[in-house]
Design a protein around this nucleic acid. Structure first.
Length: 265
DNA sequence: TACAATGTTTTAAG
DNA sequence: CCTTAAAACATTGT
């Protein structure tokens, strides 16, 4: 489920815990999401510590704790964060719970595609330092985009936009939204764009990210009806621009929704 | 029943 | 070494 703006929304779900002491840590040590972690170290470090702050970069979140704890969370396809009042009922898909005085911060993920990383250190851990530039940052330049498209010139645009090492936070719906707005077919090869098309793509990329953060990242609002977003999810939708029936096709291993009229292949 | 689901990673092939 | 495509992962809902 979560892409750039949804991740930002979920990150803030734990903000009620900032400045609060963690009284107890419960985790499913055998869950796949902890396969890169020392779960003993997590419980040991976080119990009695205080949640200091959090930050999202693309789909990668990090929560910082007193005592040097760095908790990295990736939500995968079905992960969610929530803050619930105590007492509360747990369930089998909950893998991590941080109990505060009268609330609990929970991470649940039925499909287990999410990942947790952890470090205990004063310095920023390597896995947090080595992140690609955000799409909305100054470091994300038109030139960098053009160079990347050239490097992946034989791949379909849809597949390229999903590459997190260049477009952190972009996921299936955002990639479709971007390509629909810029009127490029998901199957168009990355190396086939004119300079003008590359520049248009650059602008749409940033616009979609910016607007998604405003609409969804703050309070999970519904985007305006002139976005592809509201029409793309199930078969039978019509293009909000021209009214044509939207098409769905596997591109880059994912179902892509597009308008065959506005985005001719 | 069978398939698809807002995501990565690994493997294999070119 | 680099790029690209496909399979695998685990579970739920249609």
């Amino acid at each position: 489920m979560p892409e750039l703006a949804e991740v930002e929304f979920y990150r803030k779900c734990w903000s009620p815990g900032i400045g609060q002491r963690i009284h107890a840590v419960r985790l499913h040590r055998e869950a796949r999401i902890f396969c890169e972690c020392d779960t003993e170290e997590i419980a040991e470090t976080l119990t009695g510590s205080t949640l200091l702050d959090s930050e999202a970069r693309g789909k990668q979140m990090v929560f910082r704790f007193s005592g040097g704890g760095w908790l990295g969370i990736h939500l995968g396809m079905t992960g969610k964060l929530a803050c619930a009042p105590l007492p509360y009922a747990t369930d089998k898909h909950e893998h991590l719970a941080l109990e505060l005085a009268d609330q609990v911060l929970v991470f649940r993920d039925p499909r287990l595609f999410g990942r947790v990383r952890f470090a205990r250190s004063e310095e920023t851990p390597a896995w947090r330092k080595e992140l690609p530039p955000e799409v909305l940052s100054d470091a994300f330049t038109l030139e960098a985009l053009a160079a990347f498209l050239q490097r992946r010139k034989r791949s379909p645009l849809k597949a390229v936009l999903l590459m997190q090492d260049r477009f952190p936070g972009i996921g299936n719906w955002m990639a479709d939204e971007i390509l629909w707005r810029v009127s490029l077919a998901p199957t168009a090869l990355a190396g086939s764009l004119t300079p003008a098309q590359v520049e248009a793509l650059y602008c749409c990329l940033r616009d979609v990210c910016r607007q998604a953060m405003e609409v969804i990242g703050t309070d999970w609002g519904t985007p305006p009806d002139d976005w592809l977003f509201n029409h793309r999810w199930k078969a039978g939708g019509d293009c909000p621009r021209c009214g044509e029936a939207l098409a769905r096709e596997q591109v880059g291993g994912r179902t892509s929704c597009y308008c065959p009229v506005c985005q001719p292949g």
